[in-house]
Design a protein around this nucleic acid. Structure first.
Length: 615
DNA sequence: TGAAATTGTCATCAG
DNA sequence: CTCTGATGACAATTT
């Protein structure tokens, strides 16, 4: 829920907005549907009837919108096309009332087909496009869907570790992580997650109530690159929050602004079993794999959480004190009105749980900086920016800051591990930063807006070397992020094109099938016409000129010779040819101007058909 | 060990 | 003019 103060000249106007209302309404509608209360339409599928509400159906489906708009009487019945099966329609009907789509391997195709035919809204085609290849043979899907590399290795490793794979974005599709055929079937088959663009859902509000921009960096929680794996391993799992959050049942769900604005708690929910959820600020989609006991009938729920109530939940595994600490911290921060004007506090907050957290160093040690613009919760803000999580190098900086309370530049605490795992330039940079004793972390400097940065430069006295370094770091960090965004866009573009290709392929197959059906229909019709013509010829005793007229009505696809086997013989007789020539040489003898001949034929054929002819 | 993938950085351009 | 974001190219590193 949110309470928004609208700007008004004199008196304040408040808007109460319930985030649970819509879901409750939908739930009650579903209740009504199941009790057949206030239902005003019957949908017939394969002879089976389903009661529903017109308004709901029309709201969810273009097909129903069109059909229902033409219905006026109460108790209307709508028969769905043959292509829609019960197995395909029933999950869609439930989806309309619950936002959940439950389907299995066996009926996923039917569901998708039905959804396509009925024009069901809010069902992402990408969802099916993601799952279908997984259901099909292992080699089929791999070629259709581009591998998204940003979390590939994490997924792979997570699968091997915990049997859970993560896709942090709609484009993060890696068939390897979910390929059914695997050395460890249990682990790999449980790994399914479809998430619709977490980025787009994480528009967030800071704790101070101001809107903050949507951060693409939220994905970096799962994008710890291979380049830093060594570092991650070196620093231990406890300090690698993203890794742990993926691997362990730490659950932090939030649909509201407070937590969803942070990548650490960007609504990643990994259940103990085989469920992985993402939920975002405004909407989210998840695929939850339900698994029965030692069976093949796994079901997948496509769950639109748009209307779900606010949830702030932290579940921790007893074996993991680290995650419990993280969760507790998140909840504390969420619930507190913690504001800080200490910029350095940003970096450490999200890694307070690190094993290397020593707690020494204190804000009081920092040089005083007047930063009145930093009014929002620094923890959230920093997470929102995603800087602490975007890569190992920055992660280490965050840790450094968290441990000492001062910037990693001059903390001098994280030297060895990073030096040996990062590039020489980074080590050199750190060494320089250490020497310069900058009071700010790189992240914090990069986070500042242009004006804020300028203000900082004015209020803070830097040496020329420091100034140069700060500018350089800011430039390179921003450029690094820009490069990551750029690459992500490229991959998104490739993925979208691939989806487009798949759609066109599907359309093509559909058209080919349709053409085949039409061809068969044509053959059948030709057969019928042949039978009729033969009957006419045998019963009506057609004259040659009548036969000629008949010949004119035939098409190359269905020639007269096929209709009347002996037509050639008949027409080749000299006497008949003469009569035919005379007939053909008659002026203005168009298809509709056959005069007596046609009339004779028509009459004869009609007689033949009706049985009233003079036999 | 080499190829492919990933990522950071630089140079450059446009707004 | 400066700053920032986007992007191609290159190099270092990892897989």
């Amino acid at each position: 829920m949110s309470l928004k103060a609208m700007s008004a000249p004199r008196s304040s106007v408040f808007t109460f907005e319930s985030t649970v209302h819509s879901s409750h309404v939908l739930g009650r509608l579903d209740e009504q549907r199941r009790r057949d209360t206030l239902c005003d339409v019957t949908v017939v599928v394969e002879g089976q009837s389903f009661r529903a509400h017109r308004s709901v159906l029309a709201s969810c489906s273009e097909y129903f919108t069109h059909r229902i708009s033409s219905l006026t009487q109460q108790g209307a019945v709508i028969s769905l096309p043959q292509e829609v099966s019960v197995a395909g329609f029933e999950p869609l009907l439930k989806f309309a009332y619950t936002s959940k789509l439950l389907f299995g391997k066996d009926d996923v195709l039917e569901v998708r087909n039905s959804a396509s035919i009925l024009g069901f809204r809010d069902l992402d085609e990408a969802c099916f496009e993601f799952l279908l290849p997984k259901f099909s043979s292992s080699t089929q899907g791999s070629a259709l869907f581009p591998r998204k590399t940003c979390c590939k290795k994490n997924c792979k490793r997570q699968l091997s570790d915990d049997g859970i794979g993560i896709y942090s974005d709609e484009v993060l599709l890696d068939e390897k992580a979910v390929k059914p055929v695997a050395e460890s079937p249990f682990q790999q088959e449980e790994a399914f997650l479809f998430n619709k663009s977490v980025n787009s859902q994480l528009g967030s509000q800071s704790s101070s109530g101001t809107l903050t921009p949507v951060t693409e960096e939220t994905n970096y929680i799962f994008q710890q690159g291979p380049k830093y794996r060594k570092f991650q391993l070196a620093c231990g799992k406890e300090t690698c929050f993203p890794e742990k959050s993926v691997n362990n049942p730490l659950t932090v769900i939030s649909n509201d602004c407070d937590l969803s604005c942070s990548p650490c708690c960007s609504s990643l929910n990994i259940k103990n079993e085989s469920e992985v959820e993402f939920s975002g600020n405004s909407s989210s989609t998840l695929v939850r794999q339900s698994r029965g006991e030692a069976d093949d009938s796994r079901k997948f729920e496509i769950h639109d959480r748009t209307t779900e109530a606010d949830i702030i939940k932290a579940e921790t595994d007893e074996t993991s004190t680290v995650e419990r600490e993280v969760a507790e911290h998140l909840v504390k921060c969420q619930g507190s009105d913690w504001h800080s004007t200490q910029p350095n506090f940003h970096d450490g907050s999200c890694y307070q749980t690190g094993s290397r957290q020593s707690g020494h160093g204190a804000p009081s040690e920092w040089p005083h900086v007047n930063l009145s613009f930093t009014t929002s919760c620094p923890f959230i803000q920093d997470l929102d920016q995603g800087k602490c999580l975007r890569k190992g190098a920055d992660l280490s900086e965050c840790e450094g800051a968290s441990q000492s309370g001062v910037s990693s530049f001059n903390s001098g605490e994280d030297g060895d591990t990073e030096t040996e795992t990062e590039g020489d330039s980074e080590a050199y940079t750190r060494e320089r930063a250490r020497q310069m004793q900058l009071p700010f972390s790189v992240d914090w400097i990069v986070d500042q807006s242009r004006n804020e940065f300028q203000q900082l430069l004015k209020t803070q006295e830097f040496t020329r070397e420091q100034l140069e370094f700060v500018h350089d770091m800011r430039r390179r960090s921003k450029n690094r992020l820009a490069a990551q965004r750029c690459r992500k866009r490229k991959l998104d573009c490739i993925y979208n094109l691939q989806c487009e290709i798949n759609k066109l392929k599907t359309e093509r197959e559909k058209l080919i099938t349709e053409r085949s059906q039409l061809s068969q229909l044509k053959l059948k019709t030709c057969h019928n016409v042949t039978a009729l013509c033969q009957k006419v010829c045998s019963e009506a005793d057609l004259q040659p000129d009548q036969l000629q007229v008949l010949a004119k009505y035939t098409s190359p696809d269905c020639p007269l010779s096929t209709l009347i086997p002996h037509i050639d013989t008949l027409l080749s007789q000299p006497e008949l040819q003469h009569r035919l020539q005379a007939s053909l040489s008659a002026p203005s003898m168009g298809p509709h101007q056959y005069g007596a001949s046609e009339q004779a034929f028509s009459s004869s054929s009609k007689d033949a058909f009706t049985g009233d002819g003079p036999h």
